[in-house]
Design a protein around this nucleic acid. Structure first.
Lengths: 169, 169
DNA sequence: TCCAAACCCTTGGATGTCCTAGTATATTGC
DNA sequence: GCAATATACTAGGACATCCAAGGGTTTGGA
């Protein structure tokens, strides 16, 4: 998006917060802002790697989820819950994946309200290739040291649990 | 988006990665996925707090940035660089803020290419109120302990620097 | 001096996310 | 058994982000 800034804009914001008498929340503000920005950077890296496969992160996540399901199929509402996104977002992703012949919709055998999403052979194959690419080019070069990774998993895991993402573990 | 899951979906994904022979990148994958999800949770909280003010996070960030500028005005490209978003995103935000009479556009005095964004009195007032609300309801109750906050700031700061966000500090 | 290259902003298009209905199917309670 | 409630998916709309392209302004080298 341009050349590097001379100084860290988030550190500047933190100083501004302190200067305006909000010193007690300046640090959490900076941490949260840093999370937002880090997510943006990581998402951009991921999308770059997935682009050659004709995938976006949202669609990749759905493919990956299906590829780990026993039968290679999941109800839409299940996918929505596991991916932690709104049902309409799943509908959107499935629409596009289905058009690309990577998944197919089929009616649930016993519940007429439910639609099953099923991985096609091409979908399974593409998911495998995309995962290999992401592992090699993003997750394998995250830039986080092993200790930092462990710390992030633990701290953010607690945060997510407290936020109601999942029950005690 | 629904009720809590019985188990942490990211921990499950990590186990799946390990089970498929990608144990060496399973942990970074989990950490990165956790960052994505945490960002989503935080963004939702922020948007909830800002909604009564008729603001989104993107627009709030621009208002806050302007409120800390000496003159209360910034060139669009400067705002784009500091907020680390694409110039078209700034155009979009300014369009809406201007329609709400919170900012105004004016030509740059010496550079005919540049447009200055200036905070209106209402914009400055709203920014102040919105900041107070965010400090009280989000940053002041982040759920991260002081040590975790420091650690996040440090680790993510290094990551952002390495990613080219800003030069050495 | 003058034209090409660089820079700035905007428009138009593609995606993703969420919310608010609306339709169809299940389940529950009387 | 039937009506009321709950659940599942989808359609339409509001926003945000990015990219590609276009038109205007500056800058810099021939």
């Amino acid at each position: 998006m341009g050349t590097p800034l001379p100084r860290d804009p988030i550190a500047d914001a933190q100083r501004n917060w302190e200067r305006h008498g909000w010193g007690d929340v300046a640090a959490p503000m900076a941490a949260i802002t840093a999370i937002m920005r880090t997510q943006q950077i990581l998402l951009a890296r991921i999308e770059t790697v997935l682009k050659p496969f004709g995938l976006t992160f949202a669609r990749y996540e759905l493919l990956a989820l299906l590829s780990f399901a026993r039968s290679g199929a999941l109800p839409m509402n299940k996918a929505s819950a596991l991916l932690q996104v709104h049902p309409t977002s799943v509908t959107n992703a499935v629409d596009r994946l289905e058009r690309a012949a990577l998944v197919s919709r089929s009616p649930h055998p016993t519940d007429g309200r439910t639609t099953l999403i099923e991985l096609t052979p091409e979908g399974r194959s593409l998911a495998k290739k995309a995962t290999a690419a992401l592992n090699a080019e993003v997750f394998g070069q995250s830039g986080f040291g092993p200790d930092d990774v462990d710390h992030l998993i633990r701290v953010l895991g607690t945060f997510r649990r407290d936020a109601g993402d999942f029950a005690e573990e």
